[in-house]
Design a protein around this nucleic acid. Structure first.
Length: 361
RNA sequence: GGCGACGUGGCCGAGUGGCUAGGCAAGGGUCUGCAAAACCCUGUACGCGGGUUCGAAUCCCGCCGUCGCCUCCA
C-alpha cells in the first residue's frame, strides 16, 4: 500500500552460521579475538580506530554500570562473537563447543557475503550507532583489512506524543493502523517530508496535515491527467535532483515539486501550455514513489439518490451530467441538490471550463 | 555523570555567514449562479545568555530542554 519495494535479499542469521564460525576463526587467527571458557570475545583495544563512528573515547565509556561485566572478558569493553550454549537455548556446534553467535557478527558476515567486504551504504537507526555499528566495523575491518561501509546513514527515532514509540510500554501505533486511518500515500508523504536523520513526531495532526497536502497533488493530477507526455522541464528536474543528491534532502526536493505545481497551475489558469512542468512533476513524484492517481472505480450506488431526486440515471456520471443540464437551464436548486447528495456519498464535484469533474474523497 | 543527535513563524518542516524553501491552517482578494479547484496578497521565524563579524538563525563559548546510546538484548 505504501508502494515500497521488497528487498532483493532477506538473509536469515540461522542460515549463515557456518560463515559466522569461519569469520570468528579468522579473527582468532589474527589475534584480535580470544576464546574464553566456551565464549569468544573480540578484543576492542586491538582495533585502533574503535569509537570513530560514534565519536566515543574508549576511556569515557563506563562499562559495567548497568550490568556486572562477565568474568570471562579480558577487558570490560570486549564484546562477544560467540556465546557458549545455555540450557534450553538453540545452539550450534563450533570449534569452541556448542553455542550461538553474538549479536553483531551476523550483520558483518551477511553483509560481506551478499554485498562484499567493502560496500557503499549501511543504514540503521541512530540507536544502533553504538555499540552495534561500531562493533560491526571493528570485527569486519579486523577480519578483512578493508574498509567496511563507505557511508553510514542513520535515521532518527519515531516519537508518539512526545515519547519514543516503544513496544514494551505499549506506546506505539502500528503501520497497519495508520494505513487504516489515513490515505497510504499521505502516510508515505508524512515520512518523506522530514529528513531521514531527524527525529519524527507521529501525531494525528501531522498525518492530517500530510493528507491535506497530498490532496493538493491529487487535485493537480486530476486537472492534468489529460496532458500528453512531453519533455520534462529540465530546470525543475535539475533542482529536484540537486536536493536528492544532497544527503537525500527529500523535503527540499518536495518543495521543488510544489513550486512547479503552483507555476503549472498559474499557467493553466492563464490558458497557457504547462506540459513540460506537468511532465517534470510526474517524473519527480514517480521517483519518490508517490502514486497520486485516484482510484477509478465507479462503484458507488447512487440509485437511492437518483430516485429521491426523480432522476432516471444509475451512475455518478449520469448524475453529474444531469447536474450540468440543470445548470444550463439555471435550475440551481436541482443542481445543488445533486451536488449535496453526492457530497454525502463522499463525492466532490469540480466545475471546469471543460465541464464538471468528480472524484471520491 | 559521559558521548551524540535534535530545538526554525499558529502548526509541520528544509536551509545554514548577507539574497528571508515548501506544506497545512488563518485572514483578505480574483474566478464561480453558489461552491469546489486554482491563482494573487498578508503574517518576518530560527531554545536562552554571552562573544566573533560591517553583517549570525547560520561560526565560537556557556547554559536549558527533548530524544538516543553508554549490556553478553536483537
Amino acid at each position: 500500500m505504501l508502494g515500497n519495494r521488497r528487498p532483493t535479499i532477506e538473509p536469515k542469521a540461522t542460515e549463515n552460521i557456518d560463515e559466522m564460525i569461519a569469520t570468528i576463526g579468522q579473527l582468532i587467527d589474527r589475534g584480535v579475538a580470544y576464546e574464553s571458557d566456551g565464549d569468544v570475545y573480540f578484543s576492542v583495544r586491538s582495533f585502533e580506530s574503535y569509537g570513530k563512528l560514534s565519536r566515543h573515547d574508549l576511556d569515557d565509556l563506563r562499562t559495567g554500570d548497568r550490568v556486572e561485566p562477565g568474568a570471562q572478558k579480558h577487558d570490560t569493553l570486549d564484546f562477544a562473537l560467540w556465546k557458549a550454549a545455555k540450557p534450553g537455548e538453540p545452539a550450534w556446534e563450533s570449534p569452541w563447543g556448542s553455542g550461538r553467535p553474538g549479536w553483531h557478527i551476523e550483520c558483518s558476515v551477511m553483509a560481506a557475503k551478499y554485498l562484499g567486504d567493502d560496500f557503499d551504504i549501511h543504514g540503521g537507526g541512530t540507536d544502533l550507532i553504538f555499540p552495534h555499528h561500531e562493533n560491526e566495523i571493528a570485527q569486519s575491518e579486523a577480519a578483512t583489512g578493508k574498509r567496511f561501509a563507505k557511508y553510514w546513514m542513520h535515521n532518527g527515532m519515531l516519537n508518539l506524543s512526545g515519547e519514543k514509540m516503544s513496544k514494551s510500554t505499549g506506546h506505539f501505533i502500528t503501520l497497519l493502523e495508520s494505513l487504516e486511518k489515513w490515505d497510504p500515500m499521505a502516510v508515505r508523504l508524512f515520512y518523506l517530508r522530514t529528513h531521514y536523520r531527524k527525529p519524527l513526531e507521529f501525531s494525528r495532526a501531522a498525518l492530517d496535515d500530510a493528507e491535506s497536502s497530498l490532496g493538493r497533488l491529487r487535485a493537480f493530477r486530476r486537472r492534468t491527467s489529460g496532458t500528453a507526455g512531453s519533455v520534462a522541464d529540465v530546470g525543475v528536474l535539475d533542482a529536484f535532483r540537486a536536493h536528492m543528491d544532497d544527503d537525500l534532502d527529500v523535503a527540499g526536493a518536495l518543495s521543488v515539486i510544489f513550486e512547479a505545481v503552483r507555476a503549472a497551475n498559474a499557467k493553466l489558469d492563464a490558458g497557457d501550455d504547462a506540459d513540460d512542468l506537468v511532465a517534470a512533476v510526474n517524473e519527480a513524484l514517480a521517483v519518490l514513489g508517490l502514486d497520486i492517481d485516484d482510484a477509478v472505480a465507479d462503484d458507488v450506488d447512487v440509485s437511492d439518490l437518483a430516485a429521491e431526486l426523480g432522476l432516471s440515471v444509475s451512475s455518478v456520471d449520469g448524475l453529474v451530467a444531469a447536474r450540468d443540464t440543470a445548470r444550463a437551464d439555471r435550475d440551481f436548486a436541482l443542481a445543488d441538490a445533486i451536488r449535496e447528495g453526492l457530497s454525502a456519498l463522499n463525492i466532490t464535484i469540480e466545475d471546469t471550463a471543460d465541464g464538471a469533474r468528480w472524484h471520491r474523497d
